[in-house]
Design a protein around this nucleic acid. Structure first.
Lengths: 190, 190
DNA sequence: ATCAGCCTACCTACTGGTAGGGATTATCTC
DNA sequence: GAGATAATCCCTACCAGTAGGTAGGCTGAT
């Protein structure tokens, strides 16, 4: 039982690298140096970059799903739920230094293994479904104004949040994220 | 005077490749094969990938600026102007097979030359400025509903459009672009 | 005795980039 | 107009560095 599980350390390092540099921007050599093992040793844990990226996207989706469930358990109103999810995207942006893994991978779609593409699809469906529910809650409890079609609101908000991360990334400036979501925030009361 | 200017052919090929595959996803070898010259010959036109990408982003920005000016000249109302710009982003998405060059490059920001980053900044400022004006027009002529802060609308819409392209790219499905912008479209009357 | 975990050493393919040569075309000088 | 000169454009051949990946050996715990 090692102090820090190497496999987890590799996933952590890979997630960070992938979200900063994109799929084609990080390499096994980078991870090896970061984690402190030799490049070839990575193949013991993840035989190929394709397998690694599948595991990466799967873990990312599961973690995000857990976060969504925790938000549901912790916040009553749709507005509060949505605001908390937006905060997650803001934290995920990391001052304009990273993107959501889903967004980062989507940009280099042609380099991805089919199973990664599928994981991305599952991720998006999950988040949009969760957001749809949050918008429904917000419409019913009055905590989000002007909601008439929750599913469309969710699709729109998903794109807005990923686009806002992209905007912040473009100039490595977190204010651009905030600016992009400001109007949405005015619709959320509590 | 050659039939097709090689330099232009290289830029065209590079733009397409960059928008499909990202900055780290395309190579001089790809361009060479596409254009029909040898890899080394590209360096005659663009001594480095950094120089090429600067020229690419600069041309992209100038072309986009021209399109914006043409929209201004052809459409009266703010709503019609905005709708036309949205159409440009939809066409630019190419059925979920490409992204805006600005978005694609932003995702792999750390691989970019400083001058490219600057060009991206100029591009974003230009588009958001144009959109702000369109929203002001739409507010004044009544062709866009619910506009109170045009500058924030512009920042939000820019992120929404790039995010919508990312959504379509994620599943290579143009319907996801349409779905993401549907609510915005309902605010535009003419 | 097995096996997880990591190592050294190596492989092929490809990255952006360089050196220098062979044409073709345009330009300058007489 | 003829001839030298220069510049444009593309070529072959090569470079060092890095990509992801493989083969096989060592070590320590089960």
């Amino acid at each position: 039982m090692p102090t820090t599980d190497t496999k987890t350390a590799l996933l952590n390092s890979a997630e960070n690298a992938a979200r900063r540099l994109g799929f084609d921007g990080f390499s096994y050599a980078d991870l090896a140096e970061d984690v402190g093992i030799r490049k070839a040793s990575i193949h013991h844990h993840f035989p190929s970059k394709a397998k690694l990226s599948v595991a990466l996207m799967q873990r990312y989706r599961e973690n995000f799903q857990t976060v969504c469930a925790e938000i549901d358990a912790s916040f009553e109103t749709g507005g509060a739920q949505l605001a908390e999810l937006i905060k997650q995207y803001e934290i995920g942006s990391d001052e304009g230094k990273r993107l959501c893994l889903c967004a980062s991978f989507s940009a280099s779609r042609d380099s991805l293994a089919p199973e990664v593409v599928h994981q991305i699809s599952l991720f998006r469906t999950m988040v949009i479904g969760w957001m749809t529910n949050a918008f429904e809650n917000g419409r019913d409890d009055g905590s989000i104004s002007g909601v008439s079609q929750p599913a469309l609101e969710a699709a729109s908000t998903m794109s807005l949040l990923e686009g806002a991360q992209l905007a912040a990334r473009a100039e490595e400036n977190p204010a651009l994220f905030d600016n992009a979501i400001k109007l949405l925030m005015t619709r959320i009361s509590a």
